[in-house]
């Protein structure tokens, strides 16, 4: 447990180069808020959906920036800064080491989602029922954790592919489209809905919308389970990829090749 939590926090402080106050505020708080406003005004003008749809969806989605890039950074920056070899020399479980790294990013994601929802609601006049708040907190936490596991999977690809940032950037852009956060899922083609169903945030956004609509935690629970399952799948994929790529990089002596 100590390895999972303390190790994760130390790695976060060492590797996450957006942790300075100005970078944190500019990149992780201000940018998602303007993203929310952009889509809310666009959706309002086009008559696609009401403000609630965009505020809640984009609040959940706001966690992706910290979680997807954070998960990627948690692995890829070790390689970039030449410290990956030291981590892999450790006698402890690498799976635990790397999964522990997802936790601070998930915490970050939760904070950002709460901030985005609060400020977005104040700016655009959304009233959230008090009874929905605990459920929303759980939803944001599950969504952020799921997203951080997705980020770890992308980070694991960084052990194999040189340009992992390209994969992260494209993934983030695809999540804008496929998660149904900005375009209602019924307006997307079937294949996009299927792909979106296997991406983090999609089910968390559905759960959050049900909660804000006053449907209660019971109604949101199936979506939350699906989101947790997606996160678990990515955690397992990340662990498998890390094991595979570590073995391969040892065999080919390509651990620190950039």
């Amino acid at each position: 447990m100590r390895l999972l939590t303390v190790g994760g926090v130390i790695a976060y402080r060492a590797l996450f180069n957006w942790a300075t106050p100005s970078m944190f505020v500019g990149t992780l708080l201000v940018a998602p808020l303007f993203q929310l406003l952009f889509f809310a005004y666009l959706g309002r003008q086009l008559g696609v959906a009401d403000d609630t749809f965009y505020i809640v969806g984009n609040a959940v989605l706001s966690a992706t920036l910290a979680c997807v890039f954070g998960g990627t950074i948690a692995i890829a920056n070790e390689r970039r800064w030449g410290t990956l070899g030291h981590v892999l020399l450790s006698p402890r479980s690498r799976t635990l080491i790397f999964l522990g790294r997802a936790l601070p990013y998930a915490g970050n994601g939760l904070l950002i989602a709460v901030f985005t929802l609060t400020v977005g609601s104040l700016l655009l006049g959304l009233r959230i029922p008090a009874s929905a708040v605990p459920g929303l907190a759980v939803t944001f936490a599950v969504g952020s954790l799921s997203c951080a596991c997705f980020g770890l999977t992308l980070g694991a690809l960084g052990l194999r592919f040189r340009d992992v940032w390209l994969i992260s950037n494209v993934s983030l852009a695809l999540m804008l489209l496929l998660t149904g956060v900005n375009v209602p899922a019924e307006h997307l083609p079937e294949w996009m809905r299927v792909v979106g169903g296997w991406l983090p945030i999609t089910h968390a956004a559905s759960a959050a919308r049900l909660l804000v609509a006053g449907e209660g935690f019971g109604a949101a629970l199936p979506s939350l389970w699906r989101e947790a399952l997606v996160g678990l799948v990515y955690a397992v994929v990340a662990a498998v990829l890390l094991t595979l790529f570590e073995a391969e990089s040892r065999r080919r002596a390509s651990l620190d090749t950039l």
Partner: peptide, 17 residues
Amino acid sequence: IIPLVQATLAVYLFRAG
């Protein structure tokens, strides 16, 4: 790639609206 994703998003939004 990213502009294509953005263009696709815009297309579906305008179609939905």
